[in-house]
Simulated assay, not measured.
Amino acid sequence: MENYHGYTDSALLALIADDDELAFAEVYRRYKGVLFLHARRILGNDEEAKDVLQELFTALWTRRKSIDLKTSLPAYLYAAVRNRVFDVIAHRKVEEKYIASLATFIEKGEYVTDQQLLEQELSELIEKEIAALPPKMREVFELSRKEDLSYKEIADQLHISDKTVKKQVNNALHILREKLDMVFTSIACFLFL
Rank of each mutant, 00 (worst) to 15 (best):
E47G: 10
K97M: 12
T62C: 00
D18F: 01
F184K: 09
E2I: 13
L60M: 09
L125S: 12
T185K: 09
A132L: 10
E178W: 06
T71A: 09
L173R: 15
I187F: 06
T71Y: 00
A25Y: 02
L22K: 15
V94Y: 06
F36K: 10
G109M: 08
I160M: 14
L12Q: 03
E21W: 05
D181C: 03
K65E: 11
Y151G: 12
L118G: 01
K65D: 01
V165D: 05
A103N: 13
L15C: 07
Q115H: 11
H5T: 15
E48K: 11
V34H: 08
S10K: 10
R92V: 07
E124K: 15
A172L: 07
S10M: 08
S144K: 13
V81W: 01
I16W: 03
S10I: 05
K163L: 15
M1D: 03
G6S: 13
K50V: 05
E153I: 02
L15V: 01
V94L: 12
L158E: 05
K152D: 14
L180Y: 00
T164F: 10
H159S: 14
K97S: 08
R64C: 01
A132S: 14
A59Q: 09
K163D: 11
S150I: 05
L15R: 07
A75D: 01
K179Q: 08
N171E: 11
E95G: 03
G44H: 03
M1L: 04
K108V: 02
P134T: 10
T62M: 05
E127A: 14
L13K: 01
L102V: 07
F86R: 15
R41A: 14
L102E: 07
Y98N: 08
V169P: 06
Q115L: 14
A80R: 08
K97A: 12
E110Y: 13
I67H: 04
A75I: 02
Y31N: 04
I16Q: 01
A155W: 09
I99F: 05
Y111P: 00
Q115C: 11
S123V: 04
E178D: 14
R92D: 10
R145M: 14
R84I: 13
K65T: 11
A80I: 02
E110G: 12
F105W: 15
A131R: 13
C189K: 06
E127W: 00
K152C: 02
L53H: 00
E55Q: 11
K167E: 07
Q120Y: 12
L118R: 06
K70S: 13
Y78D: 04
L22G: 07
L15N: 02
A132H: 12
F86K: 14
D181H: 06
R92K: 14
S123Q: 15
K97D: 08
T185D: 11
K65H: 10
G6Q: 09
T8G: 02
I16A: 00
Q116L: 15
A75L: 02
D148E: 08
L143D: 06
A100C: 02
D68P: 00
A75G: 03
G44T: 04
A100S: 05
E107A: 10
Y7Q: 05
R177Q: 13
A14F: 00
E21R: 14
M1W: 01
S123R: 13
T58V: 09
F57K: 02
